[in-house]
Write a protein that binds this DNA or RNA. Sequence first.
DNA 1: TATTGTTATACTCTATAACTATA
DNA 2: TATAGTTATAGAGTATAACAATA
Lengths: 140, 140
Amino acid sequence: MTEPDISALAHDLRIACMRVARRVRFDADNTIAPHLFSVLARLSEEPRTVGELAAIEQVSAPSVSRTVGQACEAGYAVRSPDAHDGRLVRLSLTPEGQEIVRRERAHRDAWMTGRLEEITAHQRQVLREATDLLDRVVGP
Amino acid sequence: MTEPDISALAHDLRIACMRVARRVRFDADNTIAPHLFSVLARLSEEPRTVGELAAIEQVSAPSVSRTVGQACEAGYAVRSPDAHDGRLVRLSLTPEGQEIVRRERAHRDAWMTGRLEEITAHQRQVLREATDLLDRVVGP
DNA sequence: TATTGTTATACTCTATAACTATA
DNA sequence: TATAGTTATAGAGTATAACAATA
């Protein structure tokens, strides 16, 4: 593959990925707002503080604080004080919050699954390899 | 590939694509707002009306009208009346607008190109095939 | 004095409804 | 009367600055 081809691939691959991301967010009429889902998804991994969420999501602390307030008000998350540092607020998902995250993920996956059922097994194998490559190339 | 594997691929591929989209938007510290770039990118393909842009971008006509106003004010686009229908407003890019789009695309592509240079030619070939597949699967 | 989180305030993007001009 | 676009108004998310509590 020559230099120009690498650039062309970079362009086409970027466009394709952004299109998928866009479709998933728009077409799969999601029931939960993107910013709220992002926070809940992070908390589903493990309990975190407001500051940690702000750093991970790359938004301001006040913005996260507000979103967390919505999550708690909706019964998806709970605040609890840190045992050793009174300034910290530990955030964790309730069972309802975990269920919301699970359902939302299933919803998004279902949309993608439907598309993949339209192609051949061999083509899916190509996408499988490409997915693993992307994970390594783009990083965690 | 069995059923569960298709679901797993759907999940992993979706995550990988959304991660790429996210990295491009964050890492490649872009100089132009996403909604404005989207409109300019559409106009770089061909002149369009407000209604066409609204339909393509899936946002309301007033929202597009506002964004177009910004584009015109910044000197990136110009409004011109339609010859046959006085209600229509034809929008097209100025040379400055074309340059902005070109530069922004180059910026985003450069990030992706850097990643692709780290892998082998064979691996890039896999991504090339996967990209073409994604285009067909996800649609235009 | 520095850090964590929240509250106050303003700005931006988007949407619906109302309005103007043209078909 | 229907359509294309703009203007008016309101709602939601985010940011910076100011504040309260704790280290």
